[in-house]
Design a protein around this nucleic acid. Structure first.
Lengths: 143, 143
DNA sequence: TATAGTTGTAACTATCATCGTTACAATTAT
DNA sequence: ATAATTGTAACGATGATAGTTACAACTATA
Protein backbone atom coordinates (compact mmCIF):
# COMPACT_ATOMS: atom_id res chain seq x y z
CA UNK A 1 0.00 0.00 0.00
CA UNK A 2 1.01 3.57 -0.43
CA UNK A 3 -0.47 6.81 0.81
CA UNK A 4 -2.66 8.17 -1.98
CA UNK A 5 -1.18 10.71 -4.35
CA UNK A 6 -4.05 12.93 -3.25
CA UNK A 7 -1.66 14.03 -0.53
CA UNK A 8 1.24 15.20 -2.73
CA UNK A 9 -1.32 16.56 -5.15
CA UNK A 10 -2.96 18.63 -2.43
CA UNK A 11 0.39 20.04 -1.33
CA UNK A 12 1.24 20.86 -4.93
CA UNK A 13 -2.11 22.58 -5.42
CA UNK A 14 -1.79 24.65 -2.27
CA UNK A 15 1.74 25.77 -3.13
CA UNK A 16 0.55 26.66 -6.62
CA UNK A 17 -2.33 28.73 -5.32
CA UNK A 18 0.02 30.65 -3.07
CA UNK A 19 2.71 31.07 -5.71
CA UNK A 20 0.45 32.36 -8.43
CA UNK A 21 -2.19 34.15 -6.39
CA UNK A 22 -1.19 37.60 -7.67
CA UNK A 23 -0.50 36.66 -11.28
CA UNK A 24 -3.25 34.27 -12.27
CA UNK A 25 -6.72 33.16 -11.32
CA UNK A 26 -6.01 29.72 -9.84
CA UNK A 27 -8.86 27.77 -11.40
CA UNK A 28 -9.13 24.01 -11.48
CA UNK A 29 -7.98 24.13 -15.09
CA UNK A 30 -4.92 26.17 -14.19
CA UNK A 31 -4.04 23.83 -11.31
CA UNK A 32 -4.73 20.80 -13.47
CA UNK A 33 -2.16 22.08 -15.90
CA UNK A 34 0.59 22.44 -13.29
CA UNK A 35 -0.11 19.10 -11.66
CA UNK A 36 -0.93 17.34 -14.90
CA UNK A 37 -4.03 15.64 -13.57
CA UNK A 38 -7.64 15.94 -14.65
CA UNK A 39 -9.45 19.15 -13.59
CA UNK A 40 -12.19 17.08 -11.96
CA UNK A 41 -9.62 15.47 -9.69
CA UNK A 42 -8.37 18.93 -8.76
CA UNK A 43 -11.91 20.04 -7.95
CA UNK A 44 -12.43 17.00 -5.74
CA UNK A 45 -9.31 17.78 -3.78
CA UNK A 46 -10.19 21.47 -3.57
CA UNK A 47 -13.56 20.42 -2.29
CA UNK A 48 -11.92 18.35 0.46
CA UNK A 49 -9.54 21.18 1.33
CA UNK A 50 -12.53 23.49 1.47
CA UNK A 51 -14.39 21.17 3.84
CA UNK A 52 -11.32 21.26 6.07
CA UNK A 53 -11.36 25.04 6.01
CA UNK A 54 -8.00 25.38 4.30
CA UNK A 55 -9.21 27.09 1.13
CA UNK A 56 -12.14 28.95 -0.28
CA UNK A 57 -13.30 28.32 -3.79
CA UNK A 58 -15.16 30.92 -5.82
CA UNK A 59 -18.11 29.22 -7.38
CA UNK A 60 -19.01 30.62 -10.79
CA UNK A 61 -16.32 33.22 -11.13
CA UNK A 62 -13.65 30.69 -10.35
CA UNK A 63 -10.36 30.47 -8.49
CA UNK A 64 -9.22 29.18 -5.11
CA UNK A 65 -7.59 30.99 -2.21
CA UNK A 66 -5.86 29.83 0.93
CA UNK A 67 -7.53 30.89 4.16
CA UNK A 68 -4.50 31.00 6.46
CA UNK A 69 -0.86 31.86 6.29
CA UNK A 70 1.35 29.01 5.15
CA UNK A 71 2.98 28.57 8.54
CA UNK A 72 -0.44 27.74 9.97
CA UNK A 73 -0.97 24.76 7.67
CA UNK A 74 0.80 21.51 8.51
CA UNK A 75 1.13 18.34 6.47
CA UNK A 76 -1.15 16.71 9.02
CA UNK A 77 -3.90 19.21 8.25
CA UNK A 78 -3.64 18.32 4.58
CA UNK A 79 -3.32 14.60 5.24
CA UNK A 80 -6.49 14.66 7.31
CA UNK A 81 -8.27 16.86 4.81
CA UNK A 82 -7.79 14.54 1.86
CA UNK A 83 -8.73 11.38 3.77
CA UNK A 84 -5.54 9.50 3.15
CA UNK A 85 -6.38 7.25 6.07
CA UNK A 86 -9.76 7.09 7.69
CA UNK A 87 -9.60 5.98 11.28
CA UNK A 88 -6.94 3.44 12.10
CA UNK A 89 -3.69 3.31 10.16
CA UNK A 90 -3.47 -0.46 10.58
CA UNK A 91 -6.12 -2.74 9.17
CA UNK A 92 -6.71 -5.47 11.75
CA UNK A 93 -7.76 -8.95 10.61
CA UNK A 94 -11.43 -9.13 11.36
CA UNK A 95 -12.28 -11.94 13.68
CA UNK A 96 -9.52 -13.76 15.55
CA UNK A 97 -10.63 -16.93 17.28
CA UNK A 98 -12.09 -16.02 20.67
CA UNK A 99 -11.52 -19.49 22.01
CA UNK A 100 -7.76 -19.23 21.53
CA UNK A 101 -5.79 -17.46 24.26
CA UNK A 102 -3.81 -15.59 21.63
CA UNK A 103 -6.77 -14.86 19.35
CA UNK A 104 -8.82 -13.65 22.29
CA UNK A 105 -6.21 -11.07 23.36
CA UNK A 106 -4.31 -10.10 20.24
CA UNK A 107 -6.35 -6.99 19.55
CA UNK A 108 -5.98 -5.74 23.10
CA UNK A 109 -2.23 -6.24 23.25
CA UNK A 110 -1.49 -4.79 19.83
CA UNK A 111 -3.74 -1.74 19.84
CA UNK A 112 -1.57 0.49 22.01
CA UNK A 113 1.50 -0.39 19.97
CA UNK A 114 -0.18 0.26 16.64
CA UNK A 115 -1.40 3.56 18.00
CA UNK A 116 2.16 4.50 18.95
CA UNK A 117 3.20 3.98 15.35
CA UNK A 118 0.26 5.95 14.02
CA UNK A 119 1.04 8.76 16.45
CA UNK A 120 4.66 8.85 15.32
CA UNK A 121 3.54 9.24 11.73
CA UNK A 122 1.08 11.99 12.55
CA UNK A 123 3.51 13.77 14.85
CA UNK A 124 6.05 14.03 12.05
CA UNK A 125 3.37 15.17 9.61
CA UNK A 126 2.35 17.89 12.02
CA UNK A 127 5.93 19.13 12.31
CA UNK A 128 6.13 20.10 8.65
CA UNK A 129 4.46 23.27 7.47
CA UNK A 130 3.55 24.54 4.03
CA UNK A 131 5.81 27.49 4.74
CA UNK A 132 8.75 25.05 4.87
CA UNK A 133 7.88 23.85 1.40
CA UNK A 134 7.44 27.37 0.12
CA UNK A 135 10.76 28.41 1.63
CA UNK A 136 12.57 25.59 -0.15
CA UNK A 137 10.85 26.43 -3.40
CA UNK A 138 11.85 30.06 -3.13
CA UNK A 139 15.46 29.10 -2.44
CA UNK A 140 15.51 27.17 -5.69
CA UNK A 141 13.71 29.81 -7.74
CA UNK A 142 15.88 32.64 -6.42
CA UNK A 143 19.09 31.02 -7.54
CA UNK B 1 -5.69 3.51 2.62
CA UNK B 2 -4.73 1.33 5.49
CA UNK B 3 -1.72 -0.85 6.12
CA UNK B 4 -2.66 -4.37 5.07
CA UNK B 5 -3.93 -6.76 7.70
CA UNK B 6 -1.04 -8.97 6.63
CA UNK B 7 0.93 -7.07 9.25
CA UNK B 8 -1.30 -7.76 12.26
CA UNK B 9 -1.81 -11.24 10.91
CA UNK B 10 1.92 -11.86 10.78
CA UNK B 11 2.37 -10.64 14.35
CA UNK B 12 -0.50 -12.86 15.49
CA UNK B 13 1.02 -15.84 13.71
CA UNK B 14 4.46 -15.30 15.20
CA UNK B 15 3.09 -14.92 18.72
CA UNK B 16 1.03 -18.07 18.21
CA UNK B 17 4.02 -20.06 17.05
CA UNK B 18 5.97 -18.99 20.11
CA UNK B 19 3.10 -19.52 22.52
CA UNK B 20 2.21 -23.01 21.37
CA UNK B 21 5.60 -24.29 20.26
CA UNK B 22 5.82 -26.88 23.03
CA UNK B 23 2.18 -28.00 23.03
CA UNK B 24 1.18 -28.22 19.40
CA UNK B 25 2.61 -28.54 15.94
CA UNK B 26 2.02 -25.05 14.57
CA UNK B 27 0.78 -25.93 11.10
CA UNK B 28 -0.94 -23.56 8.71
CA UNK B 29 -4.23 -25.16 9.69
CA UNK B 30 -3.58 -24.59 13.37
CA UNK B 31 -2.60 -20.96 12.79
CA UNK B 32 -5.55 -20.47 10.46
CA UNK B 33 -7.80 -21.53 13.27
CA UNK B 34 -6.41 -19.00 15.77
CA UNK B 35 -6.38 -16.13 13.30
CA UNK B 36 -9.58 -17.17 11.57
CA UNK B 37 -8.24 -16.74 8.07
CA UNK B 38 -7.78 -19.23 5.28
CA UNK B 39 -4.81 -21.62 5.65
CA UNK B 40 -3.52 -20.56 2.23
CA UNK B 41 -3.26 -16.97 3.45
CA UNK B 42 -1.31 -18.21 6.46
CA UNK B 43 1.04 -20.14 4.19
CA UNK B 44 1.62 -17.06 2.05
CA UNK B 45 2.55 -15.02 5.08
CA UNK B 46 4.72 -17.79 6.48
CA UNK B 47 6.41 -17.92 3.13
CA UNK B 48 7.18 -14.20 3.31
CA UNK B 49 8.40 -14.51 6.90
CA UNK B 50 10.58 -17.40 5.78
CA UNK B 51 12.07 -15.32 2.96
CA UNK B 52 12.92 -12.68 5.54
CA UNK B 53 14.64 -15.30 7.68
CA UNK B 54 12.25 -14.95 10.60
CA UNK B 55 10.85 -18.47 10.56
CA UNK B 56 11.54 -21.91 9.20
CA UNK B 57 8.76 -24.04 7.85
CA UNK B 58 8.92 -27.83 7.82
CA UNK B 59 7.85 -28.94 4.41
CA UNK B 60 5.99 -32.26 4.42
CA UNK B 61 6.02 -32.95 8.12
CA UNK B 62 4.58 -29.55 8.88
CA UNK B 63 4.92 -26.79 11.44
CA UNK B 64 6.71 -23.46 11.66
CA UNK B 65 9.38 -22.27 14.09
CA UNK B 66 10.85 -18.89 14.88
CA UNK B 67 14.55 -18.55 14.13
CA UNK B 68 15.47 -15.91 16.72
CA UNK B 69 14.52 -14.89 20.19
CA UNK B 70 11.52 -12.57 20.34
CA UNK B 71 13.57 -9.59 21.46
CA UNK B 72 15.49 -9.80 18.22
CA UNK B 73 12.41 -9.33 16.06
CA UNK B 74 11.00 -5.84 15.65
CA UNK B 75 7.74 -4.69 14.08
CA UNK B 76 9.84 -3.19 11.31
CA UNK B 77 11.30 -6.61 10.49
CA UNK B 78 7.78 -7.96 10.14
CA UNK B 79 6.48 -4.92 8.29
CA UNK B 80 9.26 -5.25 5.75
CA UNK B 81 8.82 -9.00 5.51
CA UNK B 82 5.17 -8.90 4.55
CA UNK B 83 5.61 -6.09 2.00
CA UNK B 84 3.13 -3.70 3.53
CA UNK B 85 4.78 -0.90 1.59
CA UNK B 86 7.17 -1.43 -1.25
CA UNK B 87 9.54 1.45 -1.73
CA UNK B 88 8.14 4.87 -0.99
CA UNK B 89 5.42 5.37 1.60
CA UNK B 90 3.94 8.27 -0.37
CA UNK B 91 2.60 7.80 -3.85
CA UNK B 92 3.65 10.84 -5.87
CA UNK B 93 1.47 12.07 -8.72
CA UNK B 94 3.21 10.90 -11.84
CA UNK B 95 4.11 13.75 -14.12
CA UNK B 96 3.88 17.33 -12.87
CA UNK B 97 4.21 19.95 -15.59
CA UNK B 98 7.90 20.57 -16.21
CA UNK B 99 7.19 23.97 -17.71
CA UNK B 100 5.65 25.26 -14.49
CA UNK B 101 8.06 26.53 -11.81
CA UNK B 102 6.12 24.66 -9.15
CA UNK B 103 5.57 21.51 -11.20
CA UNK B 104 9.22 21.42 -12.16
CA UNK B 105 10.43 21.49 -8.56
CA UNK B 106 7.68 19.94 -6.46
CA UNK B 107 9.23 16.48 -6.37
CA UNK B 108 12.61 17.82 -5.31
CA UNK B 109 11.27 20.00 -2.51
CA UNK B 110 8.87 17.40 -1.13
CA UNK B 111 11.03 14.29 -1.23
CA UNK B 112 13.13 15.04 1.85
CA UNK B 113 10.03 15.89 3.85
CA UNK B 114 8.15 12.76 2.79
CA UNK B 115 11.21 10.74 3.69
CA UNK B 116 11.25 12.28 7.16
CA UNK B 117 7.69 11.07 7.69
CA UNK B 118 8.49 7.61 6.38
CA UNK B 119 11.53 7.45 8.64
CA UNK B 120 9.44 8.44 11.65
CA UNK B 121 7.04 5.60 10.92
CA UNK B 122 9.82 3.08 10.48
CA UNK B 123 11.73 4.30 13.53
CA UNK B 124 8.70 3.70 15.71
CA UNK B 125 8.11 0.30 14.13
CA UNK B 126 11.70 -0.65 14.87
CA UNK B 127 11.32 0.34 18.53
CA UNK B 128 8.71 -2.31 19.21
CA UNK B 129 9.75 -5.91 19.65
CA UNK B 130 7.81 -9.15 19.58
CA UNK B 131 9.02 -9.71 23.14
CA UNK B 132 7.02 -6.61 24.16
CA UNK B 133 3.89 -8.18 22.72
CA UNK B 134 4.60 -11.50 24.37
CA UNK B 135 5.23 -9.78 27.68
CA UNK B 136 1.87 -8.07 27.56
CA UNK B 137 0.15 -11.29 26.58
CA UNK B 138 1.74 -13.13 29.49
CA UNK B 139 0.64 -10.41 31.90
CA UNK B 140 -2.92 -10.93 30.81
CA UNK B 141 -2.79 -14.72 30.81
CA UNK B 142 -1.12 -14.90 34.24
CA UNK B 143 -3.86 -12.92 35.91
C1' DT C 1 7.01 -48.61 0.70
C1' DA C 2 2.47 -47.09 0.94
C1' DT C 3 -0.04 -43.71 3.44
C1' DA C 4 -1.50 -39.70 5.81
C1' DG C 5 -0.54 -35.17 6.74
C1' DT C 6 1.40 -31.04 5.24
C1' DT C 7 3.49 -27.33 2.36
C1' DG C 8 3.97 -24.45 -1.84
C1' DT C 9 1.77 -22.49 -5.46
C1' DA C 10 -1.22 -21.77 -9.41
C1' DA C 11 -5.57 -20.22 -10.85
C1' DC C 12 -9.57 -18.12 -10.12
C1' DT C 13 -13.17 -14.91 -7.92
C1' DA C 14 -15.17 -10.98 -5.37
C1' DT C 15 -14.62 -6.61 -3.53
C1' DC C 16 -12.76 -2.25 -2.98
C1' DA C 17 -9.93 2.05 -3.63
C1' DT C 18 -7.74 4.85 -6.87
C1' DC C 19 -7.49 7.56 -10.74
C1' DG C 20 -9.35 9.12 -14.84
C1' DT C 21 -13.04 10.69 -18.01
C1' DT C 22 -17.38 12.77 -19.97
C1' DA C 23 -21.27 15.30 -19.15
C1' DC C 24 -24.10 18.76 -17.42
C1' DA C 25 -26.75 21.63 -14.06
C1' DA C 26 -25.79 25.49 -11.03
C1' DT C 27 -23.42 29.63 -10.22
C1' DT C 28 -21.26 34.19 -11.01
C1' DA C 29 -18.99 38.30 -13.14
C1' DT C 30 -19.25 41.17 -16.98
C1' DA D 1 -27.58 37.06 -22.04
C1' DT D 2 -23.09 35.18 -22.21
C1' DA D 3 -18.92 33.01 -21.07
C1' DA D 4 -16.31 30.90 -17.68
C1' DT D 5 -16.21 28.10 -13.88
C1' DT D 6 -17.57 24.95 -10.07
C1' DG D 7 -19.84 20.85 -8.12
C1' DT D 8 -21.13 16.40 -8.83
C1' DA D 9 -23.05 12.26 -10.91
C1' DA D 10 -22.03 8.37 -13.55
C1' DC D 11 -19.06 5.65 -15.69
C1' DG D 12 -14.70 2.67 -16.70
C1' DA D 13 -9.91 0.84 -16.13
C1' DT D 14 -6.60 -0.75 -13.16
C1' DG D 15 -4.53 -2.78 -9.29
C1' DA D 16 -4.42 -4.47 -4.41
C1' DT D 17 -6.56 -7.30 -1.04
C1' DA D 18 -8.47 -11.27 0.68
C1' DG D 19 -10.59 -15.49 -0.09
C1' DT D 20 -11.19 -20.14 -2.26
C1' DT D 21 -10.33 -24.68 -4.63
C1' DA D 22 -7.17 -27.73 -6.32
C1' DC D 23 -3.18 -30.35 -6.64
C1' DA D 24 1.77 -31.58 -7.10
C1' DA D 25 5.72 -32.11 -4.05
C1' DC D 26 7.50 -33.40 0.14
C1' DT D 27 8.29 -36.03 4.66
C1' DA D 28 7.65 -38.88 8.77
C1' DT D 29 6.09 -43.13 10.17
C1' DA D 30 3.38 -47.24 10.31
Amino acid sequence: MQISSRFTLAVHILICIDTFKDEYKTTSDFLASSTNVNPVIVRKILSQLKSAGLVTVARGSGGASITRSLDEITFLDIYNAVDCVEGELFHFHESPNESCPVGRNIHLILDDKLLRVQNALERELSSIKLSDVKGDLNSILDK
